[in-house]
Design a binder for these strands. Sequence first.
DNA 1: CATCTGACATAAC
DNA 2: GGTTATGCCAGAT
Length: 109
Amino acid sequence: MKRPHYFEQVLETARLIPEGRVSTYGAIADFLALGSARMVGWAMKNSFNSEELVPAHRVVNGKGELSGRNAFEHPDLMAELLISEGVEVKNNKVVRFSEVFWHPREMYE
DNA sequence: CATCTGACATAAC
DNA sequence: GGTTATGCCAGAT
């Protein structure tokens, strides 16, 4: 496939998300200033096609909901992965989302 | 080229 | 707290 700049940027940024933290599509899109949040979701879906492993489970939507769980092998895999990393997940949502939320901007501060 | 769809976001109702 | 509308942009058809 083509290797658009934003695609690699999104995956690279996703890999920067610390364990036990989560980020959002909007935050990544805003930070990269490339395209829109939909591009991030698009990249995530295609991240399984990437050669590099990407912690896609650490990327949730703006409400902290695991909107992408359906794209995993098992719908509950995403939540289990997060829980195994220390992120509390309840009813497909990240608990205390505002506390575990991570913005790429923090890397530059 | 026209439309639809999507792991989204935001505002308005 | 849903639903609707709009912006966003790459793929698929």
